[in-house]
Each structure stands twice: as C-alpha cells, then as structure tokens.
C-alpha cells in the first residue's frame, strides 16, 4: 500500500456513516425527551408559583401557622403541610430502615441461595402492590390494631399512615441494600472470617462499612418515596391541615393536599389553583434537597474496597 492512502477496509463508507448518524439522533432524542419533560415540569411549577408569590408574600408562606387557602379568611402557611409530610415520612423511615436493613443482612449474609431466590422476588412483589391498597390496609387494619395499643389514637393519624408507608418502603430498602452488600467482594468477607469473626460480626463490622454508600443511596431513595407518597396519606392520615409534630394526630401532607384540591373544580388562575403549584414546588425542593444529600453521602462513603 502506498503511504498516505487509507486501506479500502477503513475508508469512508457513506451509507454506514448515515446509519450511525441516524441512530445517534434517535438515541439523543430519547435522552432529550426525559430531560425536556423534567424541565417542562419545573418551568410550569415555577411560573405558576411566581403568580402565587405575587399575591402572597414568601414570608407569610413560610411562617404562617394556618393553611386555609379556600376559606374566606385565607391563610397560606406551608409549614402546616410540611410538618405532616415530615412527620409521616419520619415514622415511615423509623419502620423501614431497621426492618429493611435487617432483611438485607439476612438475605445477603445468612440466607442460603435457595431461600434468597424465593424470598427476594416475593419481597419485590410487595413493592408492586398499588399504594391505594396500602392506604385502605392502614385505615381498616392497622389503625384498629394500633388503637388497641394506643386508645387515644384517632381514626385518621400520621402514625398509622406512616407505619404502613414504612412497610411499603421496606422492599426497596431491603432489595437495594442487599444488592449493595452482595457487591462487597468475597475476599473481604474471607479476610474477616479468617480472623475468627462470626457471620453477624462480619456483617456489621466489615460488610456494612464496605457497602455504606449503597446503603445510604437506598435510604435516600426511601426518603424520596416517603415524601412523595400520596394515596396512603390521603386515605389514612386524614386531610385536615394541622400544624403538628405529633404522629398521633391526623394531618394533611403536601401530597394529600394537592390530590384533595386537584380533584375539586377550582377556576384556572384562582389563588386556590395556584396553591397547588406552590405546594408542588415546595415538594420538589424537599426531594431535591434529599437527593443532594444522597449524592453527597455517596461521594463521601464511596466503596473503598
């Protein structure tokens, strides 16, 4: 071959070139679609919220202790809804993190392969149950049982809704945490066993520290699920806006307020209509905050095995 000339096998093939370009374009569009959707949602939330904040000051929004947007004496204190969201999420996490992590330790470190093969799909099936079913389960089964233990518990409460939300989240935490723990290399476990440690000691002192970033990620996902959960709270927590940090009380959350108001026929452009977007934006910011914390945790405890 003379120098300076490309082999015919490597030379420019116009047809293949266009095919590649086409495929690239299709893939780019698919990726762009999800980004654009997200941007669109954010745009709508922000632009409608701007109208809202033109009428209601942001200070009132953050400090008012009542949320009565549809009354004549309207108040717009978002903390009322935020408190319900945070309390119910906290209850859910107090249930889901210990239970989910324990299940993950069992499946990853103790269960034989046969048990794991049966248990894990069943667990994941639990994550596929519609949340409305969980909602009625909370209202009709869990609340009466809790009322036996806690006679003061009202028929609707953040406690029973949060508790059932925790049960709903358990499979996510268990499944993701188990993946993270199983990804810890066997050589690390062998090193621990060779030092004479038991299974539980190995799991707690070697496997969990090694899998910490994955565990943190699963917890953050759980927080996002809890904060964004709607149906269980709408059904079982009661929908009255109530600024409380007491899980024994009924209260509305950001999500249950949105579903309640969005079902009514609010005139477009009314202040009631705009509260939906202000509340939605608040929800988005809370979830965003947890996601940033999650990213930070991931980076801080990245796998160092």
């Amino acid at each position: 071959m003379t120098p300076g000339r490309v082999s015919p096998r490597l030379s420019h093939n116009a047809m293949r070139h266009w095919n590649e370009r086409l495929i690239e374009a299709v893939l780019f569009l698919a990726a762009a679609l999800s980004v654009l959707t997200t941007l669109g949602i954010v745009y709508i939330l922000v632009s409608e919220s701007i109208h809202f904040f033109a009428r209601i000051s942001i200070v009132d929004f953050l400090t008012d202790t009542q949320w009565t947007p549809l009354f004549d004496d309207a108040h717009f204190g978002i903390m009322v809804l935020v408190s319900g969201t945070l309390v119910s999420s906290l209850v859910a996490l107090l249930v889901a993190i210990p239970v989910g992590t324990t299940i993950a330790i069992y499946l990853s470190e103790f269960a034989g392969s046969r048990v794991r093969e049966i248990a894990k799909p069943i667990l994941e099936l639990l994550g596929g149950i519609p949340t409305i079913v969980y909602g009625y389960f909370a209202l009709l089964v869990v609340t009466p049982i809790l009322q036996v233990l806690l006679p003061n518990l009202p028929g609707f409460s953040l406690l029973s809704a949060g508790f059932v939300m925790g049960i709903m989240i358990v499979p996510y935490i268990a499944s993701l945490s188990e993946d993270a723990m199983r990804a810890v290399p066997m050589s690390l476990r062998e090193g621990a066993y060779a030092m004479g440690s038991s299974r539980l000691y190995t799991a707690i002192h070697v496997v969990i520290p090694a899998a910490l970033s994955g565990l943190a990620a699963s917890y953050v996902l759980a927080v996002s699920r809890a904060v964004g959960e709607t149906m269980i709270l709408a059904v079982a927590a009661g929908m009255q806006p109530n600024l409380t940090w007491n899980p024994m009380e009924p209260a509305a959350t950001i999500t249950s307020y949105i579903v309640q108001v969005a079902l009514g026929d609010l005139p477009h452009g009314s202040i009631g209509y705009q509260t939906i977007f202000a509340a939605g934006l608040t929800l988005l910011l809370i979830t965003l905050m947890f996601n940033i914390v999650g990213q930070w945790l991931r980076a801080k405890y990245k796998e160092n095995y």
Binding site: P185, S187, L188, E190, G191, A194, H205, V206, A210, N304
Partner: peptide, 9 residues
C-alpha cells in the same frame, strides 16, 4: 490472602 484485603477501616 493473595490480594491484600484490608477492611474499610
């Protein structure tokens, strides 16, 4: 062991 396997500590 064959490959050094220090614990994440």
């Amino acid at each position: 062991f064959q490959k050094p396997n220090p614990f994440p500590k």
